[in-house]
Design a protein around this nucleic acid. Structure first.
Lengths: 197, 197
DNA sequence: CCATTATGGAACATTCATGTTCCATTCTGA
DNA sequence: TCAGAATGGAACATGAATGTTCCATAATGG
């Protein structure tokens, strides 16, 4: 859905422009994740592009940020949809979801710091099928007796984001082996950090 | 320790000035937590103080931010020390820690968004006894067979912050009852979100 | 009640990110 | 190879936040 429109937009401009646009968006997400008040010059530099070029693609700073937010939402949404959460046992679906999220943690990291921006996006443009399918998975898991039924869907979802984010950061810092991030997050998600006795 | 020096600093100035300084620091933490690029004018307004007064207390914007970071670290550190993590069973100590953290979540929320600022603080000024005692508690718990021994101390600590932060936010949004936040965080920390079968 | 301390606000200078224009240069694709 | 597309960079205008100064007023505390 979102990716379809993105592709059609992309094919409307030359391959060169398309690549440049992508480079700017990626650089923006990376730089802004670390420093929310980063300069356009810094973003341009990170994208290996002149500041002028940035203005050619995005009139406003605001427009750039909105585009970056939208791009991240799309990226995360697509990878969630790829995980096919409605298929198979809830537990395995959750494993796929966590793995998918960890793989897009750069986008998550950026979005995490933009609580105000999320509301800037026109809700109509963003049906948020992805978000809904996550909530449905959680509810399904609770109904199937797989997830803790004594806490809310909201809580499980937010914990999920928090753990994924933490895992992604740990991986980026080298505190966890790249391939072990998802496994660790899953382990903690499922069993917590208490050993019992 | 930190609080001692803070108090001695405080007692060096008049009660009036001390209260004003405190109001500014508190307002700064609150406002900046929500909007990292908030204006000094906004902070001044939140503190019910003239912008001029802010400059009287903190020469730079940078100085204000550094002071606010330091203040939050001190506040969190103090409440951790109050929890007496070295006493009693590790599990109970962890309960006290989580409860203490949840109670200072406003400071956590501010610090969470200032990753770069943490490094701005002179490490020499900040022995971080609190941080060390948390890590010691975790290690002790692992040694006693209470906490998961198959993940690192770092991971447990970071997960702890993430869950606490998430809980604090949920409480602030009214998604969790105020008094239930700590209990929910503890439950998730210990058991995770998977039910077994 | 008075001297001192603390504050608020206006007015002003300064700095810096932003946004725009223009032109020379490089790149791309036919 | 050649025309059009795309870019980089300099130069400039603008606006907003910052930082400073000054003075009148209010609060504090002895």
């Amino acid at each position: 859905m979102t990716s379809t429109s993105a592709e059609s937009t992309a094919s409307a401009e030359s391959p060169t422009r398309s690549r440049t646009r992508r480079a700017i968006l990626t650089a923006a997400a990376t730089v802004l994740a670390r420093n929310r008040s980063a300069t356009l010059a810094e973003i341009a530099e990170a994208a290996a592009v002149g500041r002028t070029t940035v203005h050619r693609y995005f009139a406003d700073r605001d427009e750039l940020i909105k585009a970056t937010v939208a791009d991240s939402i799309t990226a995360i949404g697509d990878s969630i949809l790829d995980a096919r959460l409605e298929e198979g046992p809830a537990r395995e679906a959750m494993h796929r979801l966590i793995t998918a999220m960890v793989d897009t943690y750069e986008h998550m990291m950026f979005l995490w710091g933009e609580p105000a921006m999320l509301e800037l996006i026109d809700p109509a443009d963003n049906p948020d099928i992805a978000d809904r399918s996550v909530r449905e998975l959680i509810a399904r898991g609770q109904a199937e007796g797989v997830f803790d039924p004594d806490v809310s869907v909201d809580w499980i979802q937010q914990t999920l984001w928090a753990l994924t984010y933490t895992g992604g950061e740990a991986g980026a810092k080298g505190e966890l082996p790249r391939h072990g991030v998802a496994a660790t997050v899953i382990r903690t998600f499922e069993r917590g950090l208490y050993r019992g006795n």
